[in-house]
Design a protein around this nucleic acid. Sequence first.
DNA 1: TTAATTTCTTGATTTATATCAAGTGGCTAC
DNA 2: GTAGCCACTTGATATAAATCAAGAAATTAA
Lengths: 203, 203
Amino acid sequence: MQTQSIPDLSPTHLSQLQESIQNTFGIINTQELNHIIELFKWKPIKKGEIILRTNQNCQAMYFILSGYIRVFVETADKEVTQWIAYQNYFLTDLASFMFDKPARWTFQALTDAEVYMINKDEYNRIKDFVPTWPEIERLFICHCFTTLEDRVFSHLSMTAEERYHYFFQNNKELFNQVPLQYIASMLGMTAETFSRIRRKYPF
Amino acid sequence: MQTQSIPDLSPTHLSQLQESIQNTFGIINTQELNHIIELFKWKPIKKGEIILRTNQNCQAMYFILSGYIRVFVETADKEVTQWIAYQNYFLTDLASFMFDKPARWTFQALTDAEVYMINKDEYNRIKDFVPTWPEIERLFICHCFTTLEDRVFSHLSMTAEERYHYFFQNNKELFNQVPLQYIASMLGMTAETFSRIRRKYPF
DNA sequence: TTAATTTCTTGATTTATATCAAGTGGCTAC
DNA sequence: GTAGCCACTTGATATAAATCAAGAAATTAA
């Protein structure tokens, strides 16, 4: 995993990261924010490129500027897509990043993409100059936790069709941007079932 | 929600909480540990008692000393059990506890139980006298996150029978202690399906 | 101890979803 | 522009799991 950083970061991208950090992590003062942002490095990713493989050690956290990145794992009989991340998502293999375990997931770009990346050591330095960072991070992770809780609940209480609608409502743009088979897998159904549900609800 | 605290805590229970905090949150010195433990109050719970209702504000975190507590929610057509917590679990409605949102879940004791409880204000004071607390808490929540990630994965990649085996392997004792219909629901299957799977694997 | 209630099991049937197989359409690369 | 590939659709069929209904077993209450 190599980083191609370019000396002058695009102002548009910088403000996208700034805004997202503000929105996601709450109010931080400008000086602190700039300090955080300096630790991130810009990196372009080609369609199809794999930026993390299952069982590697995930040393980086990514912030996605543009493009679509699929989170999946190969099992004995099929590939299981766990999530598709896109603009303004923070992306990492948490178990690996936090606990130095082998990564569960593989990250592959479904389109050309641009990310900011920050490696673990630099990430861990943030708290040294942003005193409120631990609290901010705590709330962020708790938020991620409750999102996953909802997702478990969707599998305990909804049919494939209900999961489809629920997800479609909140992620319409994704349906034009990535192969639908991956969305199907992520929702826990086959591509065929997904296709049949779609036919019932043309848009 | 009221707390009946008794003046002299049982040494056995105290050490159970101590040990669990040590195991779960890593090394803390004895003085800090004692300080944390003083903030918890002992509370007995009767079988059937509901200690949190959906849409209430969850002001407490519980540490379970003994007994079984079911986490569930009523939907339009059925009750969905999300989890069953027992000895040495920390239990709260995270979205409510952290973000003051209405609780998603209802907590009901399936057996008589004993818990230590700590309210939100006291919980938030821990970091004032345990400097390493935020870091400890971060790792704990990340661990919970990855557990949920596994659970989502189980619904994307496993059959009902596989989920049954996977869960049974790791939670054998639960099967003798609580009505099986709740375990079925928590694994995303009906009680009938659960019963038929069990018949195939008598033990 | 017996009655009442709850939980679990079993069978018959239906429904949802997966699987298999074939074909269509679109995109990409030469 | 055409060949080849990949994604998607569609139909036929198989399978997993839900539902419905009844009864048996276990637990709780009187």
